[in-house]
Design a protein around this nucleic acid. Sequence first.
DNA 1: CGCAAACTTGATGTTGCTCAAGCTAGGTGG
DNA 2: CCACCTAGCTTGAGCAACATCAAGTTTGCG
Lengths: 235, 235
Amino acid sequence: MYAAASSTNLAKLDVASLAMCRGLAQNATKRVVAVSTLQRAKAGETLFTEGDEADGIYEVVSGMLRLYKLLPDGRRQITGFLSAGQILGLAPRGIHSYSAEAVNDVSLCRYPRVGLDRLIDEVPSLARRLLAVASHELGTAQNQMLLLGRKAAAEKVASFLLLMADQQGNGDDLAVPMSRGDIADYLGLTTETVSRTFTKLKTLGLIGLPTPNRVQIRDRDQLEDFAIGQNEAES
Amino acid sequence: MYAAASSTNLAKLDVASLAMCRGLAQNATKRVVAVSTLQRAKAGETLFTEGDEADGIYEVVSGMLRLYKLLPDGRRQITGFLSAGQILGLAPRGIHSYSAEAVNDVSLCRYPRVGLDRLIDEVPSLARRLLAVASHELGTAQNQMLLLGRKAAAEKVASFLLLMADQQGNGDDLAVPMSRGDIADYLGLTTETVSRTFTKLKTLGLIGLPTPNRVQIRDRDQLEDFAIGQNEAES
DNA sequence: CGCAAACTTGATGTTGCTCAAGCTAGGTGG
DNA sequence: CCACCTAGCTTGAGCAACATCAAGTTTGCG
């Protein structure tokens, strides 16, 4: 059931690029890297499951993860899609409060709890860094609550596309590696509604859909208006 | 527009009870208390608004706060109701990402950023404590996303009541100081739906409503089943 | 080229929203 | 002390948005 993830050291990885170490002194970076290991997971594999013991935190190096929670009857809420540079696994009481799966092939950097705990006490800037990460995630979560609780379907999908575009930073051409069902479970919709809304945004000329897994943002301004309910013309 | 909050030192407050200092050594507690001030806000007053500079963090000492975000057209999502012992104001980039208002009369403990930043570097256990707070809030936020995205109205209301009961710890008799409109904006519903659902839960015998602002939990087990969609009998 | 999974599109259904009208309780002033 | 008045709560009727159910269609992989 779990990822038979391979684990190696980080000899080859450009440690300067690790998000975990952003803002840390070179000396601190070295110590953080020393406790870390590289890990891989194939598309669809589970990294950990809600309720598992959290024995460390992870940073996505490449690929994309989905984090989610389930209700007993199988309803799923995806709480985030994580790509390179994002950190996961900060868990209160040492128990994961969500599950993590690979959307596509993923490589990760793992920071075991034991090593990290000691480092936090010895390297205050690392504690500061982790606090910044957690605060940022908290802000993201609040935005998502606003989306889930108060936005209409079209506003949700528009917001999602802009979020993905921001995350990728590749201008207005973006990869959508996850399925329509994943997107639906992220936005509190159904597969069908997501699909219909994509079609509608395409028909309105706001986006292009060269393939189902690729989206071009054609009118970012109007899409941004759409995302916050400021679309003047209803259609 | 803002709270004309009074500010005094903490001479009279039982510092041992501050959530901020839980798990800290006596020496560390003293240093934290030294930088803190007591502050009050009357019902309805605004503590800070989304976009304001975050010049410190707060701990609720008594009363209840609501945190919320707005869309340009006025739609509101309440992201949390905070009561005694809860901490708010951890903000990335020093800007509040939500607004905070007093539901009823509130007293708070304020920890100015300047003093706190230095303490974090000098007291590793404080950094650890703040990280735990942030992680816990993150878990709460993920539960709320599951609620907002995937639960039906009755499940949302049942979850809300159990959450309030947990927060208050007063057994099965709980105060509901916020309005139906506040509850609606917390659960992604309307005032009318919240009201109807309260009535329905009362009719089913799961709760009692002696007054609109007081709820008795009459059948906690069934309410818990309801909250996660395991209510065998639909009615 | 064939097959299965994912996506799209259509028809119908249901939940919760909107609009509208009473009801209740708490606070105020006569 | 009581009547009023207002804000908040409740209840009802109709409706709209999104879900559900059901075919088709496309895509990507073997």
